[in-house]
Amino acid sequence: MRRNGPLALVFHAVFVTVMVAPILVVCLVAFTPEGYLSLPTNGFSLRWFRTIANYPEFIHAFWISLGLGALSSFVALLFAVPAALAIARYRFRGRDALAALFLSPLMIPHVVLGIAFLRFFTSFGLGGSFAALIIAHVVIVFPFALRLTLAAAIGMDLSVEMAAVSLGAGGWTLFRRVTLPLILPGVISGWALAFIQSFDDLTMTVFLAAPGTETLPVRMFLYIQDNIDPLVTSVSACVIAITMTALILLDRFYGLDRVLAGKGDPGR
């Protein structure tokens, strides 16, 4: 492969700087020792990270987000793993339509989903409940869980399963001892990606969350609506740190380009 020219490298440098700048600024401002928004020119301070402790609603929202992400991704996998195996293994009538339906939450704007879920759950008296949040998040993270599990299931050598069957394994034993271990990397990555999607979602959740079930992004958004101060930057910095950690783990474990390839792609 031929090398990039100087012009291309300058373009690349500017591009990467602009991509990183907003994230970097948030993290830098979070360390300001001043009482107002400013870059930490006179040394770094953790005062705004300590201030978070005085705002229990942020801490509470963090736990809500964590529990919601972990649980909804897990439940989504309970539905997605069998569905992925069916779609990967069998050619049946309605297969393409089913796959399109299962990926459709990627295509439907999250505002519309938020409104639809709000309407749906309030009519059952579940508006603002944690249960409603779980169900809604299961639906929006389902495509991510499905896609990675599906990739693993398609990539699996079917004769390995046949070998297990010929040796006498069947049903649940076959799944637990052979199929699941073989697709496990895909399943775990699917869980991680689904978790991140759930953990980050604002647009849909903002319609469903009530005081007490507000997730961290919702809490941050509502806070920013009123005023922007260094507190929200320190909270953001924590969120960024958590996501980056998950991201690096995901990259090591599965390869980031594989995880993201085709993400959000509505057509296919």
Binding site: V239, I240, M244, D257
Partner: peptide, 18 residues
């Protein structure tokens, strides 16, 4: 370049607001 995709939109937009 792809990493920001998974970082909270609120945090990224906050960066631009700053």
């Amino acid at each position: 370049i792809l990493g920001p995709l998974l970082i909270s939109v609120v945090a990224r937009t906050l960066g631009w607001a700053l």
